[in-house]
Write a protein that binds this DNA or RNA. Sequence first.
DNA 1: CCTCCTCCATACGCCTCCGTATGGAGACTT
DNA 2: AAGTCTCCATACGGAGGCGTATGGAGGAGG
Lengths: 196, 196
Amino acid sequence: MATGKRQSLGPADWTRAALDALARGGLAAVAVEPLAKELGTTKGSFYWHFADRNALLAATLKLWERRDTERVVASLDEAPDPLSRLRRLLHLAFSSVGDGEAETAGTVELALQASASQPLVAETLARVTKRRLEVLSALYVELGLAPARARDRALLAYTAYLGHAQIAHATPDLMPRGRAFTTHVDDVVKALVDVD
Amino acid sequence: MATGKRQSLGPADWTRAALDALARGGLAAVAVEPLAKELGTTKGSFYWHFADRNALLAATLKLWERRDTERVVASLDEAPDPLSRLRRLLHLAFSSVGDGEAETAGTVELALQASASQPLVAETLARVTKRRLEVLSALYVELGLAPARARDRALLAYTAYLGHAQIAHATPDLMPRGRAFTTHVDDVVKALVDVD
DNA sequence: CCTCCTCCATACGCCTCCGTATGGAGACTT
DNA sequence: AAGTCTCCATACGGAGGCGTATGGAGGAGG
């Protein structure tokens, strides 16, 4: 009977905090003692629920991957024709990355991308990226492209998204703002959808 | 040995080693004691030539930026017409990033991109990115695009390059190999050059 | 030869993080 | 009420990094 309102912490609290820290400060920020301080507790609590830091990392990555998968399949509906779906998907992805100041989306992904030397990170990143590429590729196939070319275009679209997120995060001053941002996204989507 | 005839180390040796370490292990690898061990010396040497770690970082970033600038202006010649130049530039950039195993180019850039929280890093990264975008933008203008659209296309090309490098570095298994890689790059260049 | 000045080695204190050991404070059972 | 189990606090040892202090080794100059 653990559900309900317990005042004591569970593993879920730690993974949630770790995911937050990961988004804010990268992989290095997923550290036991700082997280403990942030949660108002001590390491004693952590090492009760987890074997070591790596176990927390694994759980955190799992949580992120699960959320991401849900998000992907969720956004896959809406709009019947493939062209609209692709447009909508790209537009959402590129817009969410960060106009102005709100930089909520994609920061975890960038943090992981930066720490791909860690095997655990590399694995989950590979899985997620693979899945996204498959989704994109399928959409291009629906648009009438041959599988090989569809995969190329999917890769281009995804790399563009990645770099877009990268710029928006690292050097946001070089990203157009407000109206210019909107037109830029429109232009990008147009270029990526256009399959001559 | 190579440069002068001094067997004692100078600041240049440290910055070169630091740049290497930066490419290999990211910003965290630019650490005094590990570098000292690698150079076969101790911290005593380092703190004679530099005030602190931050000074080394500044010098290292400066070195990279200088090299990068030279590389950019050097690759800007060759080929008379703008379309050939753009093609050549993009092809070079995307190809150098890492077919197969050789991952020499762009790793420093990715390391910096990952550590943009550091103000020093953010500054130099912004300068370099800005300059590259200007070069690309100018090329698109030469191709006949209006300045605003040229800048959008330049940003798209650069973000695609960034993401391309990102994928090649973090999840190289998802990048086509050999012949497929070549055709992919061709396809990408074609899509980026095409300005309908 | 002696001295000074450059360059580096060694040793130290401080900090942050990891992981372990151990001793409770509560709650829950019997 | 006593025992037991869950969860956490505290204390400890170790590793690795930063920066400082201090003492040479060795050549340049007098």
